[in-house]
Nucleic acid binder design. Structure first.
Lengths: 343, 343
DNA sequence: GCTGCTTCTGTGAGCGTTCACAGTAGAGAA
DNA sequence: TTCTCTACTGTGAACGCTCACAGAAGCAGC
């Protein structure tokens, strides 16, 4: 067979070249390219052979011009830049989405909107139709961007439950409350009774739910809630450190802490070490996420695994469905307790 | 020709609408859009007003179809996926490039090629002309992808010096050797004489240069090189940990270690702690990168700062220049010693 | 007057696709 | 025969833009 050579090639082959090569018309080649219905087996075979021989690749711009679709989707992160630097979760999510989209041969456009200006610029870009849909990640939800995009009719899926409940925006989230429950039950099963908590950001459902799960299990166990044992954080490492210091001050007899993210738990571990507590003997520490931070900590962190791979693949699935005309959907995925050395 | 109005407005305005609105022709609008040369001030003003009034945004697909440019560039990472999860440097680079491109209103397509299959798929995608150029990140260079893209005539800039020296590929890198020299001189200035090293991957210039700098300074200082003091790593946290264990076994009298990346230095710190060494009293530890890992370590890491923000902006600058027809270029940026608690 | 030059403007063509539609061939039914 | 139906194929027109080119207007020099 003829090898596809890379001689003095200047312009790439067009659908016309393929048609001529296969001895058929443009229309037939186009039909083969898009599903292959109403094409005779012989023609399809000839076209495929011609495509292989010429090294033809469809010109996405020409296709987009007529279909009105861009066949690309945006990954929009509306977070201050430090969090993107610091938090491994974004990475995992970004990678998962990129791969899930790659399976559909859809490129991902990375959009980082740390500032107000960037947010405006990107919103305009998106609403101009340059992407077919948006995967939106933002831990402080109640984000105006989400509503703007939804109102502009842009297919949209958020990671984590958005704050406006009935707002008709798709989202995929882990079962935060259930995960929190599992962790606190685990700490109770180890005989701990003075269990503190460093919460996540409480302006978003994720943080609220994890706190609720903690309170729920303690109440069930007949343990009175002690507000000195709860401090709030914002998912950053620094807030974990500060939170632990505050807890030690307020409740020196604390024998366990449930921390709403692994990154914060890293900060908690530092503070506890500094205070001379040994882990898990004096204080057991439980995290949330099972991010790479959990393994990088010493001791390695017992944590609640969020199924990030499934979260990202579900986000993509729901988004593509929505682009295909389906209604917005909410997906809640189960979490899993991962026991390591810190408890 | 009064047929364009038909019920509720669905389609976005085109250049034609703007032209009619401004009372000029398509050509004039196009000229205003692309630089505004050969346009009278009056016409330019009318066009801009019309653009504002109609909310017109150029259709990039139509433009790309005729110009042949896609006005987007790819960020290609050819690394096994674990490294992308683990290493904060990629994040910083990715963010820097995204922002530098955003300033030119150029979207970034994220391309992750962990496997051979993905590499093939993405190479085809790129050579099909779907992006105007590629920012290539790969710590194990000598990457066949780089040569393939270069041979296909795709504008390309690598992060870090590629292994084939005269290979006519643009790259931007920090001055690895000089950084290593600074760090080792710093350790010497603290009175340390038994200085170990955990190297980076030695199949790429970055790792080799850092080792060379280390050897150079020791030799200058009249210290005999001791091969028991050098172990090789691969930039991963685990390899740092293993490396430190090996060093402790081979040279228990070691009083300092220079580690070729912060992430590996984290591993080194763990191993040293476990062995009961106090830092920096017993062993001083110096890292490389000044990534977020340096601050997340305890004690905080003395390290060599790579100017990632400048690296990314230079990569973008060089790439855009190359797309504009300029020759490939190499840029070497200076590093800086950052003193913290680990030395 | 004609010629040349500069600055500005409008027009037709065409980029590579998809889509709607018209057309063909062959099989089966009336 | 003729008509209908199905399975397939080819063709012209878009899609929204840029580019080359032609032309207009103004001005100067001869």
């Amino acid at each position: 067979m003829t090898m596809s050579q890379s001689g003095g090639r200047r312009k790439p082959p067009t659908i016309h070249d393929v048609a001529r090569e296969a001895g058929v018309s443009r229309g037939t080649v186009s039909r083969v390219l898009n599903g292959g219905h109403y094409v005779s087996p012989a023609a399809a075979e000839a076209v495929n052979a011609a495509i292989r021989r010429t090294g033809y690749v469809v010109n996405r711009h020409a296709r987009s011009l007529i279909t009105g679709r861009s066949d690309s989707i945006g990954f929009l992160l509306t977070e201050p830049q430090e969090r993107f630097f610091e938090d491994p979760n974004f990475n995992v999510l970004l990678r998962g989405c990129t791969q899930a989209l790659a399976a559909h041969d859809i490129p991902l456009l990375l959009m980082l909107a740390g500032t107000q200006d960037e947010r405006r610029r990107l919103t305009r870009y998106i609403t101009a139709g340059h992407v077919d849909g948006v995967l939106l990640v933002s831990s402080h939800s109640g984000d105006p961007v989400a509503e703007q995009l939804r109102d502009a009719g842009v297919p949209l899926v958020m990671c984590g439950k958005p704050i406006g409940v009935g707002s008709k925006v798709s989202y995929v989230a882990a079962d935060d409350r259930d995960g929190a429950r599992d962790m606190v039950r685990h700490l109770l099963s180890l005989g701990r009774r003075r269990i503190g908590m460093v919460t996540g950001a409480l302006d978003a459902p994720g943080g609220v739910e994890r706190l609720a799960g903690y309170q729920e299990v303690l109440t069930e166990a007949g343990i009175e809630l002690d507000e000195r044992l709860v401090v709030s954080g914002d998912y950053s490492r620094a807030s974990g450190e500060a939170g632990a210091e505050l807890l030690l001050e307020r409740a020196p007899d604390m024998d366990a802490v449930f921390v709403a993210s692994d990154l914060m738990a890293q900060g908690v571990l530092s503070a506890l070490h500094r205070a001379g507590r040994s882990i898990p003997e004096d204080v057991a520490v439980g995290g949330f996420d099972d991010s790479s931070a959990a393994l990088a900590s010493s001791p390695e962190l017992t944590t609640i695994r969020q199924p990030y791979d499934r979260i990202s693949s579900e986000m993509v699935r729901v988004l593509l469905a929505q682009i295909g005309g389906e209604d917005p959907a909410a997906v809640i995925l189960p979490t899993e307790l991962v026991k390591r050395q810190s408890t």
